[in-house]
Design a protein around this nucleic acid. Structure first.
Length: 572
DNA sequence: AGCCCTTTGAAGGAT
DNA sequence: ATCCTTCAAAGGGCT
């Protein structure tokens, strides 16, 4: 039974213990649903262990003390959050350097793609570094590269301090720190980079952790204006490594990127990034690309006519083509996309399937099977991603990308009731994926109950953390449980829909280091997850009594156990 | 070559 | 406020 932390706890982990999302019955249900293979059983066991650990205090203490117990990872988390908030405050305030040689210049954190470590796929992406954009773009060679963490030691070998870790081998932040490095060959770190410290464990040079440096983000030429990674709340402490190379290699989320516009201009002005003229190679003069910018010319083939045109100065390129070749700033990845990006390789490795459509079905189901804590990581990650994106491209709008793809065919939604009743939907049939999915928790694996069946019905109904809400909200996606108990205050079952304010990715919201939990906003978060009510009979949609909600619960649970084909196709 | 498929979530326009 | 559409990743399949 979800319970809000009335004490104003804004700590992710603390709230983890304050809010219980699953009861034992749901866990049993989860077991019965998921025990379709040994592997699934193992996953369920491990997940239940984690959940039992997480909920150990909540299950028996709903009426008792729910005060969070001190956890070292939470302390680290808090520290990192404060770092992050401080960085954002600085950027919000202009982020001016306070010392020579750039005193008075605002800084902007950008990923340093010139970091040679990043170019080596065998090294941890945690070696990602950042450059400080000097204003106005002072030409300082090798400007102030700073490394977050330096040891390439795998996380599982180097963790001494417990941190919030992703259960999988690949850290969820991995997609975010894959900012482009493909176009930069490995090399020796420039000597003028920030002072390095030899890691006593690994012997690998590293730059000092911010905690080892000036609290005001060192202003030396080698480390001017250092600010923490915007995702620093998850960035490991020194000597730790949160990141690892994904199985499929080290790819950035935005392929073939080019930072065409002056970063500082983007920050200081509000014009749309695609209006910024861009060099032929799509790279800024500083050589700083950003993953979200995609130049079609680059994305296709470097040897394409675009390159020759630029090099040979052929003026024959039509204006339309010029238009088309404008850099394409892609949308930031949402939580599920980040999850997919991280887990795809794993699923592909486990399964014989290669089709992305099938893989995505599995991933979608696994996504629902994730615990709230795990999902919260990705929601938070996505929020950071959007935040960073909005910082880098203040004038960008998702609308800008409309039309970048060819408009998809009208989806399955029928245009007429007749179609609605009688037209079979050729799409979304998972039958072709049946045979090879035994080893995977495929959409139609085993008894077929796995398909689209989250760990619990409430998981399917649960709100994702309110998008871009306060941190607490984000990290604490409250359960939109259909269980009647304790939800009497909801006179009506919430209808699916977007949480209001879902687009609030403003800095102000995210800089709220200690946001107070608003019950109202929490409630909004509760309602934010779309629910497939189209599969429910209308009589249940208005379920208001505990009895009705219980019926809804069981009904939805039943639906959850149906193969996708039964859900997406008309029931015979 | 380029679209389709498939997933969830975010965003923004339309109603 | 809600609904609808588009796009984000991925890569095999298909036209």
């Amino acid at each position: 039974m979800p319970q809000l932390n009335g004490g104003g706890g804004d700590d992710l982990g603390a709230n983890d213990e304050l809010i219980s999302f699953k009861d034992e019955g749901e866990q049993e249900e989860k077991i019965s649903e998921n025990v379709s293979s040994e592997r699934d059983l193992d996953e369920v066991k491990s997940s239940l262990v984690n959940e039992s650990e997480n909920n150990s205090s909540s299950s028996d203490s709903e009426q008792t003390d729910r005060r969070p117990r001190p956890r070292p990872e939470l302390e680290i988390y808090e520290k990192q959050r404060e770092h992050f908030a401080e960085a954002l405050r600085r950027q919000q305030d202009g982020g001016f350097f306070k010392g020579p040689p750039y005193a008075g210049y605002p800084f902007l954190m950008i990923p340093d793609i010139t970091n040679p470590y990043l170019s080596n796929g065998s090294l941890s992406p945690s070696t990602r570094t950042y450059l400080q954009m000097k204003w106005p773009l002072l030409d300082v060679p090798g400007s102030a590269a700073l490394k977050d963490s330096r040891s390439p030691t795998p996380v599982h070998l180097s963790n001494k301090v417990p941190v919030v870790q992703h259960p999988h081998h690949v850290h969820p932040l991995t997609p975010l720190i894959t900012y482009s490095n493909e176009h930069f060959s490995p090399g020796t770190p420039p000597s003028h980079l920030s002072p390095e410290i030899l890691d006593p464990k690994t012997g690998i040079p590293r730059t000092p952790h911010p905690s080892e440096l000036s609290p005001y983000y060192p202003l030396s030429p080698g480390a001017v204006g250092q600010i923490p990674h915007p995702l620093g709340w998850l960035v490991p402490q020194q000597g730790q490594h949160m990141y690892s190379i994904p199985p499929g290699g080290f790819r950035h989320p935005y392929p073939a990127l080019a930072m065409n516009a002056s970063m500082s201009s983007l920050v200081s002005s509000r014009f749309s990034p695609h209006m910024v003229p861009h060099p032929p190679h799509g790279l800024h003069q500083t050589g700083i690309p950003h993953p979200a910018i995609v130049s079609p010319a680059i994305k296709q083939e470097p040897s394409a006519d675009s390159a020759s045109n630029s090099t040979h100065g052929k003026p024959s390129v039509p204006m339309k083509k010029e238009e088309e070749k404008k850099p394409h700033i892609k949308k930031p990845l949402n939580a599920f996309m980040l999850y997919m990006k991280e887990m795809r390789a794993k699923v592909v490795a486990e399964c014989t399937l290669k089709e992305s459509a099938a893989i995505n079905q599995i991933l979608g189901r696994r996504w629902h099977s994730l615990s709230r804590e795990e999902q919260a990581k990705y929601y938070e990650l996505a929020r950071k991603e959007r935040q960073l994106h909005s910082q880098l491209y203040p004038g960008w709008s998702a609308r800008d990308n409309y039309g970048k793809r060819k408009k998809r065919k009208r989806d399955n939604k029928p245009d007429s009731p007749e179609e609605n009743n009688f037209s079979p939907q050729p799409k979304k049939q998972c039958v072709p994926y049946l045979p090879s999915e035994k080893m995977c928790d495929s959409p139609t694996s085993s008894h077929g109950s796995m398909l689209d069946s989250p760990a619990t019905p409430s998981a399917a109904l649960a709100s994702p953390a309110a998008p871009a809400a306060t941190h607490s909200e984000q990290a604490q996606p409250l359960s939109l449980t259909t269980k009647p108990e304790g939800r009497g205050h909801h006179s009506h079952f919430p209808l699916p829909g977007k949480a209001s304010g879902s687009s609030s990715t403003s800095l102000s919201s995210s800089t709220s280091t200690h946001p107070s939990i608003s019950l109202h906003s929490q409630s909004a978060a509760l309602l934010s997850r779309p629910i497939p009510f189209t599969t429910l009979p209308p009589s249940l949609l208005s379920a208001s009594s505990p009895f009705h909600q219980a019926a809804l619960h069981s009904h939805h649970a039943l639906l959850q156990t149906q193969p996708l084909s039964l859900v997406t196709k008309s029931v015979e």
